[in-house]
Write a protein that binds this DNA or RNA. Structure first.
Lengths: 187, 187
DNA sequence: GCGAACGGTCAACACGCGTAGAGTGAGTTG
DNA sequence: CAACTCACTCTACGCGTGTTGACCGTTCGC
């Protein structure tokens, strides 16, 4: 095996082990040592590749932050777009585990918390509010974000029986009217 | 000052400091030492009163779990009851900070996570499903819980600008139709 | 083929943590 | 006032952590 292929593989193995542990046990409870052990590697190598535990976490717990999909939607399309965007973050094994690792730690890890609050929730809410318009636009946009976050947590982090096993179609069918109630609040 | 009044006061001071730190920094990042310092007390005293860090956390981070209010509601009343129940958990300074401490750690602290998942979400969803009836009852109940959790987190843990500052009346006015869309899903 | 480069390991350090046990001094009780 | 209780403090232990720098052995460029 060539040298840099070997490098790429072990780096990927470390990353996989890190994602797994960060997403299950959380940042503080996963140790460099346990990640290294799971990747069959020396702890010092993890440091060499990722600089620090924070660096490893930043690399392992990612949240693809493309606001475009949602923010280019019309009022009419917004509910489905928001749902598709949220559920799409969890497609593909690595993507999914990276997203779960991020979500699991977004309440307690300072940097993940900052990103979730400022970049994911606030920025997006501002954009959605612009699409919505009206007096309560900002609040309604915030509540849309709140419901989507609740859905993501229930389905992928808590894995609640009903919500985690539901089909995507059922989720869209039931949640679309929910979001619409915030897009076009009844008089 | 009498001896046991003094005792009660320092115990309360420790508990207040613990709630404050658990709710802001999370379980792992608050130390017995820092809590003791904030309460102007020796770390060993915290151990003497609460047994262990886990014991202190269990005492400080509480979630009043009365399912009655919600589960005695009719289909018609359920949205308002669920909202009132959720918002009610955060009334009163101590109650509020205890609830925030619990929520902040419900993704990463094993015991808080277990309680949130099994007792708060699952048990309640089962009860709500019984009220709802119909094919998707369990899923719809789960989604109601998901939205309520998202609301609680956004308002009290993340303190998102729009959601945290909204009046209770606005919240009820906007969220009631949201929940109703899950109670009576449109054909 | 030889020296550099690099993937990978080993042993160790310094630190902060939860926790334990002996000690102290003021309030309580007979 | 003496004996005692109990809130509270001091000191220290043991452990696991993130992190470091010196060290091997293979692979690459010349």
């Amino acid at each position: 095996m060539s040298r840099d292929e070997r490098r790429r593989r072990t780096e990927a193995a470390i990353l996989r082990a890190a994602r797994e542990q960060f997403s299950v046990a959380g940042y503080e409870r996963t140790t460099i040592r346990s990640v290294a052990a799971a990747a069959s590697v020396d702890p010092a190598l993890v440091m060499q590749y990722f600089g620090s535990k924070e660096g490893l976490f930043a690399e392992a717990a990612r949240w693809d932050d493309d606001h475009q999909t949602v923010l280019q939607a019309s009022r009419e399309e917004l509910p489905r777009a928001a749902l598709a965007d949220m559920l799409g973050k969890f497609e593909g094994d690595d993507t999914r585990e990276a997203a779960v690792a991020f979500m699991r730690n977004c309440l307690t890890h300072p940097e993940a918390n900052r990103i979730m609050r400022d970049e994911v929730m606030c920025d997006r809410a501002a954009g959605i509010a612009a699409i919505l318009g009206g007096d309560d636009a900002e609040l309604r946009a915030g509540l849309i974000g709140a419901c989507m976050m609740g859905l993501g947590l229930s389905r992928y982090v808590f894995e609640l029986p009903g919500v985690a096993t539901a089909s995507r179609a059922d989720l869209e069918r039931l949640m679309e009217p929910v979001l619409r109630a915030l897009v076009d609040p009844p008089a």
